[in-house]
Amino acid sequence: MKEDIIITPPYIKVINNTNFIGSFKIEPLEIGFGVTIGNSIRRVLLSSLTGYAITYIKIENINHEFSSIDGIVEDVTEIILNFKKIRIKNTIKGVDKELVNASIKESGIITAEKLNNFITYFKIVNKDLILFNKNNDKKINFSFFIEKGKGYVQSEKHKKEENLLGNIYIDSIYTPIINVKYKIEQKDKLENENNDFEKLLIDIKTDGTINPKKALFKSCKILLDYLSFIISKKSYNKLIKNKNYDKKNDKFLKIKKILKTKLSDYENLSKRTLNCLEASNIKTWGELILLDKETVLSMKNFGKKSLTELEKEMKNLNISFKMKKPN
């Protein structure tokens, strides 16, 4: 007799949800599922959500980070560290990157809010972040590149050979999640209810580019997509198809190797046959299979005995005359 597994449908209650902080309760859960679900959601939140960050900066007349800029209190290294802290939100759907050109003339404290005047498709949310202090009215021209990504990427991985000289690459923090905490408690017992259930409490802190509730739902969808793929019939069929492809691929590689092989490497072919083929500039099996029997027989000194010898060897190798070369 097949045993049915009955799952008590849990529900989610939003205790608190702002742009930066969210608290959620999920219940009822079977004993043990609080840790399973809580840990899975936490790991996905911290590692798999995408975000936006600056990947490099280019400052006019500055070629490396160990420099100073006239009229700027901070050196370039400090400025880079401040740019690394910028948190960016996408404002136009479908746009994943933007090269921003900025020019600042005024003196005083320059905050990240100033950069929003030059950005088209994105918005800096931590506007009060101090980037540098300027003590003159001399114009500073610079550009920076905003790009979509996931997790934490070191500056070295952004470098590409085609990038222009003068780009100063920075470490990029793409993940919009700052912290995730969860704990398991026993579910509040209702009247006439057994107490074999628990509740999961999740606290999520974001950088303000995504609200915690949306982040929670995104992480659940990622988990659901993975699990659905594993159990779906479509994925099973795809797996079988891939196995068949591997078998075909192995056969292709084997034939490819044979066709590249020199005829002279085969001991079963007589010297007379090999000399006739070589005289007609046929040195490999790949060159031979392009011909038909009549063409081979018309070669000088090539007889039926040699043809029989060739056909026997070709049969053993699963190749034939006028055979199509595999792509």
Rank of each mutant, 00 (worst) to 15 (best):
Y174A: 08
N39H: 09
I140N: 11
D207T: 00
D265K: 10
S23E: 13
L288A: 00
M314Y: 03
L263N: 00
E30S: 15
L201Y: 15
K293D: 09
K181W: 14
T308F: 12
F118Q: 03
M323I: 05
N126H: 05
N268M: 13
P28H: 05
I80E: 09
T206K: 01
E65L: 13
K205I: 11
H158W: 10
S264Q: 14
G38H: 06
I31C: 02
D171C: 00
T175P: 01
I231H: 07
L263G: 00
D207N: 11
V95T: 11
I31F: 14
F33L: 02
D207C: 03
S306Q: 07
M299I: 07
E113D: 14
E106L: 06
I72C: 00
L129K: 14
T209S: 10
T36K: 02
D250T: 13
K139E: 12
D225T: 11
Y152K: 01
L131R: 04
K25H: 09
L49W: 01
D128A: 05
F33P: 01
V296E: 00
Y266L: 01
S306M: 00
R272L: 06
V95I: 11
K114I: 15
E294Y: 04
K221I: 13
K213L: 12
S48C: 10
I62K: 08
D137E: 10
T209F: 14
N249C: 06
N242S: 10
K127F: 05
I31V: 10
I289K: 02
N141H: 05
G166Y: 01
N268V: 15
S270L: 03
L216K: 04
S320Y: 05
S155E: 14
Y245F: 12
E185G: 14
K293Q: 06
K312H: 04
N126S: 07
A112N: 06
N90M: 07
T55A: 01
I31M: 14
G34D: 11
F217R: 05
K157G: 11
I204G: 03
D250M: 12
L45R: 09
S270V: 02
V44R: 02
G149C: 05
K248S: 13
L277M: 00
P326L: 04
K300C: 02
K148C: 08
I62G: 14
I41Y: 09
Y56N: 13
I5H: 07
F302E: 04
N268F: 10
F118V: 08
T91L: 10
L45D: 08
Y266D: 03
L291W: 04
L165E: 11
N39T: 06
K283H: 14
N268T: 15
K214C: 01
F229I: 14
G94A: 12
N167P: 03
N244Y: 13
T111C: 03
L223H: 06
V153P: 03
N101L: 13
E78N: 15
K89Q: 09
F321N: 00
K213I: 15
N136R: 04
K199C: 15
N82Q: 11
I37N: 03
K25T: 11
E311A: 00
S228I: 08
E30L: 12
E98C: 03
S270Y: 00
